[in-house]
Design a protein around this nucleic acid. Sequence first.
DNA 1: CAGTGGTCTAGACCACGCT
DNA 2: GCGTGGTCTAGACCACTGC
Lengths: 268, 268
Amino acid sequence: MIPDLPNLPKADIQPAQPAAVMSGAAAIQVGPTFSPLYQQIKSLITQSLQSGEWKPGELIPSEVELAVRFKVSQGTVRKAIDELSAENLVVRRQGKGTFVATHHEARSQFRFLRLKPDIGKQQYPINRFVEVKRIRAPGEIARLLDIKVGDSVVFIRRVQSFEGVPTILEDLWLPGAIFKGLTAELLNEYKGPMYALFETEFGTHMIRASEQLRALPADETAAELLKIDLGSPLLNVERVSYTYGDKPVEIRRGLYLTTQHHYQNELS
Amino acid sequence: MIPDLPNLPKADIQPAQPAAVMSGAAAIQVGPTFSPLYQQIKSLITQSLQSGEWKPGELIPSEVELAVRFKVSQGTVRKAIDELSAENLVVRRQGKGTFVATHHEARSQFRFLRLKPDIGKQQYPINRFVEVKRIRAPGEIARLLDIKVGDSVVFIRRVQSFEGVPTILEDLWLPGAIFKGLTAELLNEYKGPMYALFETEFGTHMIRASEQLRALPADETAAELLKIDLGSPLLNVERVSYTYGDKPVEIRRGLYLTTQHHYQNELS
DNA sequence: CAGTGGTCTAGACCACGCT
DNA sequence: GCGTGGTCTAGACCACTGC
């Protein structure tokens, strides 16, 4: 008897379940391209993040609530959120809920800053903005930002110092269409990571970046601004940053002085 | 009736389940320190990997088999293996089973080699071993390898070339106790990644590494071996590699020529 | 105490690889 | 056809948070 019992209730609702799985999929995504339910849920949640339905730092609906909304089991929602959490798009907090990831947080201050002091504790550098202007996108920048050559881009040049020592000279290019009101004043007023400012002021949340590193000799500009000899070896870091939907929204070209610092990387 | 049915069978076995969960934990790990069952399972599987019960490339028991062995549900084993898979300790293949990760595989050839050509496809470099000898561990090496100063270590110096261009000058230090029969002949006979050789010949599987990067001027040795000017900027990569149990088993100090190549890194 | 995420179980079916 | 991992469900209880 008892060994059969677990199957009895199943026998009543089971026929609807494979149908529910498939029709659930069909209801969400019509067509021949099939993907697991939890991937579709994940994609729906990402869309809500992208659309700004839930903003950085905010609490998103609970797993049970989302399960009801999407008409799937809590386990399926859980798996979708698990992946989003692994990709740092959301942060889970036991007993409290799931929150949209934000760059305003002690924990994420150093998420995209891999330069660490050889000795002592990592701390956030002081910014000095050397130049902020709008220019027409050169070919290479336009290509990387996926915009048209000649489109407006914001160009920023800054020097970052650790304990008074100028250590990073960095040039940035941002699509003018997105970063409309970006001025030197705004940048100077702001403390902390630029990505936090971008998130709050321009609704653009960086979620991923790709970097290419090489060693280069200091040119005249770098030598002057970093107060080093012409030709000194510098770590050149070229970065493309992406927001939701793998859309590139920032180009950086940094020159790192690595006499007292190093770029830390974990391989696995 | 039916709404109650799901609870009835539970009512019979449920009292045993929390006990089973807890006693399962107790059976595996006695003491006050509690950790989730799947973490304990994960740790047990890792021990089997470390002990060599399942060797690199081999098939490990199926999820159901492990569930029976450890007296837990398949879902719990699955979660344990999911994490091991995420850490690249095992590789899952649908329809075939779960395999112990190995460095002998096209897919993992470049896992620890982040240097990519600026143009064209990544390919494996040609090795030239300049020096292979046994020395007494200097202080810094001993500290990093967690051995005693003066203990025997194998020192290797090699130059790696891409398409005939010498690009990487690398010094390695390995614990002599582990790498007993390592000779220049053995290294020269072997094609492909050194980690594959280490795995097969010395039973040491690298699972993780930590790197520190900086820009340095070429010294006389580097200038000569890489055929570049003295003082040319080189990318210096210092690596500590770890095997199971976070045991350090290799130190590398590489000088990368980055005129035609770059070090690729993804941030998230 | 209620609500949230975290763990664990049991059982079903699907997709894949091999024989 | 069978065995594997992959997906999905339903339901239970635990651990943590805040009222």
